[in-house]
C-alpha cells in the first residue's frame, strides 16, 4: 500500500530531479585559493562514500566548498575553518583525526610498532 502511494506521488510530481548546482568559483587570490583547497581536501563529504568535499560532485559538498572559500577569503585561518565544520558535524567531518585521549593509541601507533620491533630485534644482535 505504502509502495503504491509512493508510486502515485512519483507520477504526480512533475520534477523530482535535484536542480544542478552552480559551478565552483575559485578565489581570485591564488594563495587563498591554495589554502582553501588544502582545507577542502581534508573535509569529508557528508552524503558520499568516503570522499573529500574537494573530490565530490554532491550538491552539499559544493555548499561546503563555498563556505570554505568565503571563510578563507575573509581571512580565517584554515584551522578555524576546520573547527567550524567540526562544531557542526563532529570529528567525523574532518579527515584529520583529533589529537585527544581517545585517539592517543592511533597517533602513537607508528612509534609503538617501531618500539616493539626494536625491542624484539635487540636481543638478536651479537655484541
Amino acid at each position: 500500500m505504502k509502495a503504491f502511494a509512493i508510486a502515485l506521488l512519483l507520477i504526480a510530481s512533475p520534477v523530482l530531479a535535484e536542480p544542478p548546482t552552480p559551478p565552483d568559483v575559485p578565489l581570485s587570490n591564488p594563495v587563498q585559493e591554495q589554502r582553501a583547497k588544502a582545507v577542502m581536501a581534508e573535509l569529508r563529504c557528508l552524503t558520499c562514500q568516503n570522499q573529500s568535499i574537494a573530490d565530490s560532485n554532491a550538491a552539499q559538498a559544493q555548499a561546503m566548498r563555498m563556505e570554505v572559500r568565503e571563510r578563507i577569503a575573509a581571512g580565517e585561518e584554515p584551522e578555524a575553518v576546520r573547527a567550524f565544520f567540526v562544531e557542526r558535524y563532529g570529528d567525523w567531518v574532518s579527515f584529520v583525526p583529533p589529537a585527544r585521549e581517545d585517539t592517543a593509541l592511533l597517533w602513537a601507533a607508528p612509534l609503538l610498532f617501531l618500539g616493539i620491533g626494536v625491542a624484539l630485534v635487540a636481543r638478536r644482535f651479537r655484541r
Binding site: 548546482t21 552524503t47 552539499q60 565544520f85
Partner: peptide, 13 residues
C-alpha cells in the same frame, strides 16, 4: 538557494 542553511543547522540531508 545555495544550501548554506544545512551548515547552520548541521543538517546532512
Amino acid at each position: 538557494p545555495g544550501g548554506r542553511m544545512m551548515l547552520a543547522f548541521g543538517a546532512s540531508g
